[in-house]
Write a protein that binds this DNA or RNA. Structure first.
Lengths: 118, 118
DNA sequence: TTGCATTAGATGCATCTGCATGTACTGTCT
DNA sequence: AGACAGTACATGCAGATGCATCTAATGCAA
């Protein structure tokens, strides 16, 4: 019970802070960043379903997230030749650059909020 | 970093489970429940702003949450005579009943997910 | 091969969300 | 009293979300 409210408060604090700073400094949200991070750490390409799990999203949210990021030129979709129902998602140069810029911001916020939050 | 992903996963797990069970069994979401709980534990009435803090919501979300719950007959709004900008919110009989029904569900889910999640 | 259950991802729809702003009221300062 | 900054809540709007559903592709079985 107290655990739950602490979890709720902690999540709201960290998520909110991340969302605000990432949005202001780089124009992306937490979900976008998580996706960028997942894509940057797997080499080359990555199934859409992997992003779903990495960012704790629902299937439809992931689908639209990818669409949004594609529109903004951060990722590209590619046919998955192993299973033609699926798609591969990969970072563009712009996506890789944005991730490199946003990563320090992300880490700084975590440091600050998780560190101070105790 | 690992802390953050654990927090994210944990929150998604608990919040998702609560949302699903509360929705299916009682037709309310997590935010509605948190509001009911806050209103049931303060005696009689409660300022709108209190709900904002209790459920970690934004101001506008709280305003609409109250409107929704009022529409569903769970709460009532009353003028706040101390400060006529503010409003008091109070449970109706139906709201109190629903809280009594939903509380065991809520506790059971927490027990289950927080207990097993370690 | 044909049929059927299953899976990956896309999408329509209703709903929810935050942001910015609007309205009404308060308290303070002059 | 009058002006004005600040606070409590409501709301228009654009964008995000989940749910249910759709389409296309897979794999298994008859």
């Amino acid at each position: 019970m107290r655990q739950w409210h602490e979890l709720l408060a902690r999540h709201a604090a960290v998520f909110g802070a991340l969302e605000a700073k990432l949005q202001k400094r780089h124009g992306i949200g937490v979900n976008e960043f998580e996706a960028l991070e997942r894509l940057a750490t797997c080499e080359y390409k990555c199934r859409a379903a992997d992003l779903t799990q990495a960012a704790q999203l629902s299937q439809s949210t992931t689908s639209r997230l990818i669409a949004r990021m594609e529109r903004e030129g951060l990722v590209e979709r590619a046919m998955c030749d192993m299973d033609r129902r699926g798609i591969f998602v990969m970072l563009t140069e712009a996506g890789r650059r944005l991730y490199a810029q946003a990563k320090p911001t992300h880490r700084a916020v975590l440091e600050e909020v998780l560190g101070a939050g105790d």
